[in-house]
């Protein structure tokens, strides 16, 4: 059964909004299996909201999409990069620091494609979910349109379920006949 890489869709939706990315929103609703009750605000409002939440804002950036803001580990960049390297990935374009939200989602999608569930599970538990939950809380506190808090909240729930699925070993890694 061919798998659909939901991490990529999440990464698209959490990146700066444009028509192409917004077209994926219906797909997102199907993935998380919930229909967004509010109507999707026009693109311009979304762009302002996105900039206010994740880029630059007054008085200060309420929900910076960087893990280092939420985790107070000492040399976080080293930890993340060594984790990437341990499963054979190195950052090619240094447009963002290694703890950028989209980079981590893309990394997860790579693991998903490699079916490296063990690493995916470890990354979700040990690094991604702990800070993503705090990030979602900050988004919910500051999002006026409610669109991004919907997306973040549903992604958070979906990923937690995903974590359980991985724990079940339903789609486990070693192919061994029982």
């Amino acid at each position: 059964m061919e798998k659909i890489n939901f991490y990529l869709i999440f990464a698209n939706l959490l990146d700066y909004p444009d028509e192409k990315k917004l077209s994926l929103f219906e797909r997102f609703e199907n993935i998380v299996g919930l229909h967004y009750t509010g109507e999707i605000p026009p693109l311009e409002n979304l762009e302002i909201e996105y900039t206010k939440l994740f880029v630059n804002a007054h008085p200060y950036l309420p929900a910076p999409p960087f893990a280092s803001v939420y985790l107070n580990s000492e040399n976080l960049y080293d930890e993340i990069e060594s984790f990437y390297q341990s499963v054979g990935y190195g950052i090619e374009t240094r447009e963002f620091p290694p703890d950028y939200l989209i980079y981590e989602l893309v990394f997860l999608s790579n693991l998903f494609n490699d079916e490296n569930y063990k690493a995916e599970r470890k990354f979700l538990i040990s690094h991604f979910l702990p800070w993503f939950e705090k990030f979602v809380k900050k988004v919910k506190e500051n999002d006026e349109t409610g669109f991004y808090s919907f997306i973040c909240e549903k992604i958070n729930i979906f990923l937690n379920n995903r974590l359980k699925e991985l724990k079940d070993g339903e789609t486990n890694l070693q192919k061994r006949v029982f």
């Binding site: 070993g169 339903e170 789609t171 192919k175 006949v177 029982f178």
Partner: peptide, 9 residues
């Protein structure tokens, strides 16, 4: 089926 039918909570 998956891999481990018994590997389930």
């Amino acid at each position: 089926w998956g891999v481990y039918p018994l590997w389930n909570f």
